[in-house]
Amino acid sequence: MNGVVIATIITISSVGIIAAIILYWASQKFKVFEDPRIDEVEDALPSANCGGCGFPGCRPFAEACVKADDLEDLDCPVGGNETMMAVAKVLGKKVSEKAKMVAVMKCNGATQFRKKHTEYDGALNCTIQHNLYGGETACQYGCLGLGECVDACGFDAMYMDPETELPVIIEDMCTACGACVEACPKDIIELRPVGKKSKRIFVSCVSHEKAGPSKKACSVACIGCGLCFKECKYDAIKIENVLAYIDPIKCVLCRKCVVVCPTSAIWEVNFPARKVKPTIEEKTKLTEIKEIDLIKTAKVNSKKR
């Protein structure tokens, strides 16, 4: 009996010792030197691994930060200035402040403004539909409404409005990582500076169609009439290819262009209500972000998959 116990103890401990030696040898042999600052930088990052910076995840970004001589080209859109400051502090480098951005949906073609002429019947994926044809409505530039951007969003900052069949961006949750911008095959979503007190004015249309067909396809389309261009005293509005674009840097938020737009294609967000409302009622209804019924939204989305 004793012999068995002793034999067992000897065997097991010798196995343990041999294993320990092998492990020690392996850890020495295959040791990879890693800059300890990479870990420190990584700790400072949000760890969302969203890829908004252009790197596959937070660690590769941290490696790039450590390697780079200059942090100017590197930016974590999710963490924003604070994070980049923290990273700069760890590395002893300098970083300039960048304007905070937010994703903006530039199509207002809700079902009541844009009539459907055909019925799409296939895989529920925007890119696939985009590759097939211009979309169910007569507007070939507008939102297809299948929610690829919502799927791409890693921060739950978007949901599909079942009524308008358009995606809605929840401003407070948007980190401007740019995943939705990349996902949208129609290039409808744009990253714009948040602006003073989150006030923004932008053209909510991407149609390059001429005025006639544009107006026919969608009642809230930008028809490139140029009224806003004439109205703007700050040279902030450009009209290119029958489409107005408001330069967010030059824009001083005077709101004059909003009033003159005949199709209400220009949106103002987070402004105090006007005394005389120039816009149609539905528009304000669409701009405000609704109390989200998360379960309902999830159901709608899951049904679509």
Binding site: G122, A123, T127, I128, N131
Partner: peptide, 12 residues
């Protein structure tokens, strides 16, 4: 299943 739809997506 919409196999070809997605294979086209893969090709894109």
């Amino acid at each position: 299943r919409p196999l070809l739809d997605y294979i086209r997506l893969g090709k894109i």
